[in-house]
C-alpha cells in the first residue's frame, strides 16, 4: 500500500471514530434536553418588527411562521396541553407577513377556538381572527362558515352564528347549506342535528386528515351523546315509576325500562351513580362528549345543545 493511500485510510478511519463519538454525545445532549424545562419563547413578538426584518421576503417568512404555528399546535395537542400561549402571536405574525395566506385563517381559527386540550380555548380570538380573514377574502363563504361554526359550537351564541351564516349565504356561489344553517339557528337555536350538519360539512370540505379526524371525533361524540340521552331518559322514567332513584342497573332492567345493562361504545358497562346520573367509566376515551361526564367535569362544559 502506498504511503498516500495509507494516510488517506488512516485519516478516514480517524474521522469515522470521531464521528461516532460526536453522534453519541449528540444523543446524550438530546436526552438531557428532553428532561430539561425548556419553555416556549417567541423571540420577536412584534409582527411589524418581523415584517421589517424580512427584507421584503415576507411570503417565505409567513410560510415559516405558519409552519411553526402548525408544529406548535401539533406538539401541544399531542401532549394534551392546557395552554397554547404562543398560538395567537404566531398566527398574528403569519397573517401580518402574508395577509393572503388563507389556510392560516381557516385552520388557525379552529386551533384557537376549541377548548383545551383540543385547542387554545380562545373563541373570542378565533372570531377576531376569522373576521380579519373575511376582510381579506370577503367573497370566500368558507370563512363565514367558520365564523358561524365557532359562534355556534364554541360560544353557543346562536344569533351571532345565524348572522355569520346569513352573511356567508349572501356571497356569490356560496354553499346553499349556509342558508339552511342560518334558518336552523334562527328557528331552533342549537339542536344536535345542526351540529351534525356543521361537523359533516367540516369533514367533507377539508382534505386535511387531522381536521377530518377531528370532525369524525365530534360526529362520534354527538352520536354518543344522543345514545346516552336515550338511556338517561329511561333512568328518569324508571325513577318516576319506582318513586325513588334506582340503586343499580338491575333495578332499571327489572322495571322493564332496559333489556340489559347499557354499555359504552368500547363495550364497558356505563355507571349508574347514586344520584341517578349516568356516567362513562372512562370518559377520556370519548373526546368532545358533553354527557356522561363525572360531576366535577360537568362544570366546565357548557349546556349541551337540545
Amino acid at each position: 500500500m502506498k504511503t498516500r493511500t495509507k494516510t488517506t485510510v488512516f485519516l478516514l478511519l480517524t474521522a469515522g471514530l470521531i464521528a461516532v463519538g460526536s453522534i453519541s454525545s449528540l444523543l446524550r445532549v438530546t436526552q438531557l434536553r428532553a428532561h430539561s424545562t425548556l419553555t416556549d419563547v417567541l423571540f420577536i413578538p412584534s409582527a411589524k418588527a418581523v415584517k421589517r426584518m424580512s427584507l421584503g421576503y415576507t411570503g417565505l417568512l409567513a410560510d415559516i411562521y405558519w409552519t411553526r404555528a402548525v408544529q406548535y399546535f401539533g406538539s401541544h395537542h399531542v401532549v394534551q396541553a392546557q395552554e397554547y400561549d404562543l398560538l395567537s402571536p404566531l398566527l398574528d405574525i403569519t397573517v401580518t407577513l402574508d395577509p393572503k395566506l388563507e389556510p392560516a385563517y381557516k385552520f388557525g381559527a379552529i386551533f384557537l377556538a376549541q377548548k383545551p386540550p383540543a385547542g387554545a380555548g380562545r373563541p373570542d380570538l378565533a372570531v377576531e381572527f376569522v373576521e380579519r380573514g373575511i376582510r381579506e377574502f370577503p367573497y370566500d363563504w368558507h370563512l363565514y362558515f367558520h365564523l358561524g361554526f365557532i359562534e355556534y359550537i364554541e360560544r353557543h351564541d346562536y344569533i351571532a352564528a345565524a348572522k355569520a351564516f346569513e352573511r356567508g349565504a349572501r356571497v356569490p356561489k356560496a354553499n346553499p347549506l349556509l342558508k339552511v344553517l342560518a334558518a336552523n339557528m334562527r328557528q331552533h337555536g342549537g339542536d344536535r342535528q345542526t351540529a351534525r350538519l356543521l361537523w359533516q360539512n367540516v369533514y367533507e370540505s377539508n382534505p386535511n386528515k387531522d381536521i377530518q379526524e377531528n370532525a369524525l371525533e365530534h360526529l362520534a361524540a354527538l352520536r354518543y351523546d344522543e345514545q346516552l340521552e336515550r338511556i338517561i331518559g329511561r333512568v328518569e322514567a324508571a325513577t318516576a315509576k319506582l318513586g325513588h332513584t334506582p340503586s343499580d342497573w338491575q333495578e332499571v332492567v327489572a322495571a322493564g325500562f332496559l333489556r340489559a345493562i347499557p354499555i359504552d361504545p368500547k363495550g364497558r358497562p356505563l355507571l349508574l351513580m347514586p344520584d341517578g346520573r349516568v356516567q362513562y367509566s372512562r370518559p377520556d376515551d370519548f373526546p368532545f362528549i358533553q354527557l356522561g361526564l363525572p360531576k366535577n367535569r360537568q362544570l366546565d362544559i357548557a349546556a349541551p345543545p337540545q
Binding site: Y57, G59, L60, A62, D63, W66, T67, V70, Q71, L101, P103, K106, F107, N208
Partner: peptide, 24 residues
C-alpha cells in the same frame, strides 16, 4: 419537504422558497 410539515401550503411554500432563493 418543508411544505409537507406545514398545512395546506405546499405549493405556496415552493413558490415562495424557490423565488426567494433565486433572488437572494
Amino acid at each position: 419537504l418543508f411544505g409537507q410539515i406545514s398545512l395546506e401550503i405546499e405549493r405556496i411554500v415552493l413558490i415562495n422558497m424557490g423565488l426567494t432563493s433565486i433572488s437572494i
